[in-house]
Design a protein around this nucleic acid. Structure first.
Lengths: 195, 195
DNA sequence: GTCTATATACCGATAGAC
DNA sequence: GTCTATCGGTATATAGAC
């Protein structure tokens, strides 16, 4: 909206590019990726669609800007698993680390969880190994030479972690460390059943 | 494609209407609801888009035909919860029943899970209490006068059950009764933590 | 960097012949 | 019940002035 600009940064502290990304995340989260138009995103920011194209080359580029930081974080974590021995303490540490980044990126995570098909379709072959990264995490959690039952429980444990993305809606007045502790224990309980 | 028809039923045993529903489920599951066109559905069946409209009044009507049976099943289960005492045996029975219908409807369930935003948007106000039904289930599982921690664990337990929808991909050679037993115990473990 | 105006394409849905 | 043809709407994306 013609705000004063110094080398690409709005004086207020947030660039137009960032404002577009934030508005798009909000819109994609509520209406879905396919059902959100770039005109709506531009309206939310207070610019026109044509101006938006100055900052992002395409709708998919905008989506990538939103989710790439989280994907990179997950990728780094998963690729590091190869060097971590599968001990009970390390399993606990790995789950805790994933839980922390899930909580930190919960808004983007919820978008990916609730609009998976549309996003996967839009990204096409840009992240061909994304699902494989998730499977690798499950396989690492299950441990070497795990049987089918253990692999199923490892997948269920990962599902428990995804509860973190909805935690603000479910228990809004609970502090984040407590949520982390509860879900960590729950996931470990699924992975190592008492009975 | 002009197959002989007796009172709405193709002689082969499956009506065109059913074929459209099945093709749509397949297409919606892979490409998402918004990104799937009725032209593609019609092409998969071998008819034109106009013929499809003879069987279903709108794209949303087609979606409803796919998901309504599962929704009705869930609704019946949740509305019956009011009359069930919250005892450990009943909690186990309720989880088992939900697990069974989740497994029975896993293809439709996976569609709803992976394309939530688009489907909720398309349905609009047709099922205004759908999310509330899920919350009621979580609250019943947590029990009367439950604290925030228990409610969070009840939600996580429901997430464990959703693993059933992916079970065929994760452990394809495991029989369904074993999957049911494993996930039932996992969900109970989350709800009643040992530590 | 932002604008107006537009090219191009596909969508859901309908009309009407057969 | 299925078809061809088309309407009205909206989407992404671009051209070019300022």
């Amino acid at each position: 909206m013609g705000a004063p600009v110094v080398s690409g940064t709005v004086v207020a502290g947030r660039s137009t590019k960032d404002a577009i990304r934030d508005a798009a995340l909000q819109l994609f989260s509520t209406k879905g990726f396919d059902h959100s138009s770039l005109r709506e995103v531009a309206d939310a920011v207070g610019i026109t669609k044509a101006s938006l194209y100055y900052h992002y080359a395409s709708k998919v580029d905008l989506l990538v800007a939103i989710i790439e930081p989280m994907f990179d974080e997950v990728r780094t974590q998963v690729e590091g698993l190869d060097e971590i021995a599968h001990t009970p303490e390390n399993v606990r540490a790995v789950i805790r680390e994933r839980l922390r980044s899930t909580l930190a990126n919960r808004k983007v995570g919820a978008l990916c969880m609730r609009d998976t098909v549309a996003i996967v379709n839009a990204l096409g072959n840009r992240y061909p190994d994304l699902i494989e990264l998730h499977h690798r995490t499950c396989r690492w959690l299950a441990g070497p030479h795990a049987d089918a039952d253990t692999l199923l429980r490892a997948t269920a444990a990962m599902q428990v972690l995804s509860t973190a993305m909805m935690s603000q809606e479910i228990v809004p007045d609970t502090d984040i460390d407590h949520i982390e502790a509860t879900l960590l224990n729950a996931a470990l309980g699924v992975l190592y059943p008492a009975r």
